[in-house]
Design a protein around this nucleic acid. Structure first.
Lengths: 142, 142
DNA sequence: GTTTAGATTGAGACTAAATCTCAAGTAGGA
DNA sequence: TCCTACTTGAGATTTAGTCTCAATCTAAAC
């Protein structure tokens, strides 16, 4: 498995961009978090560690990480975007509990296959997808 | 098929709320639009028709419409929420072209069934779900 | 018809997420 | 070294959405 940093640097190369100190800090921080994260969370964590990076750079770099394919955006029913790193994980989707907020990951090969065939039928070239199922988790349903 | 307005009024009744002039205007506007809409779009359309309703009321009423089950939120990859009315439509999900922005609806019973069984396995009580597949549509792929 | 409690609204202040601007700094190829 | 293009930070700006609160409306109870 290629290290994230190599992939990112290679991606940046293709865009004539370079792996700066700030971009590396953000990359490391993103990959140190398991699960779902918010842009501002990265900003605040770095700030706490005295590794100051501006908000603008955090947002800009997250955009690059998404474009590089290392990270993806996820919509979890809240009014802002979450991110999660995809490199080194098998693809998965989410069950979101609307009471306690828990997010349960799942993956299902058969669903993926059916989605692929929906795309094929319509001449649509899939790049990514997200599935969210909202409801009550085991502990929250009455 | 029950009229939306009856369903909405019945829903409001259960919450001890009433179908006011403003709520009716918003309901009508929402159901006059086919496809996906934004909160601000409703606000501006009503304004243009001199049927002024405040932004706050538009947002509040859209929330009620979502809770009543007549309308749902959809995430289409942009940084704000879209809405679509569900009453009178069979459930569907979306293929979103990231180049031209076109949104293609699809529905697939087999996918729905598999999702239901994913939930069952995990003791999760599904209320709703959304599937978005991002990529290039027939016309935009090279 | 009055009373009254609670629902409803609008205007604009406010919040939060995300983007933009621009001057100053940096990196790397020629 | 020079030069060009990339990169950054600070803070202004934009945009979506929420909140506040006084004024108004509604409808059930009297």
């Amino acid at each position: 498995m290629k290290k994230e940093i190599e992939i990112f640097e290679r991606y940046l190369k293709t865009k004539n961009l370079s792996l700066t100190k700030e971009r590396k800090l953000i990359l490391d921080e993103v990959f140190s978090i398991d699960g779902h994260l918010e842009a501002d969370e990265i900003f605040l964590r770095l700030k706490k560690d005295k590794k100051d990076v501006s908000r603008a750079t955090v947002y800009r770099t997250l955009g690059l990480l998404v474009n590089s394919g290392l990270v993806r955006k996820v919509y979890l029913g809240e009014d802002h975007i979450h991110y999660e790193h995809t490199h080194g994980h098998t693809h998965h989707d989410h069950l979101v509990c609307i009471k306690c907020g828990k997010v349960i990951e799942f993956s299902d090969k058969k669903i993926e296959k059916l989605q692929a065939s929906v795309c094929r039928e319509r001449g649509f070239q899939e790049l990514s997808h997200t599935v969210q199922i909202f409801g009550y988790c085991k502990d929250c349903k009455e």
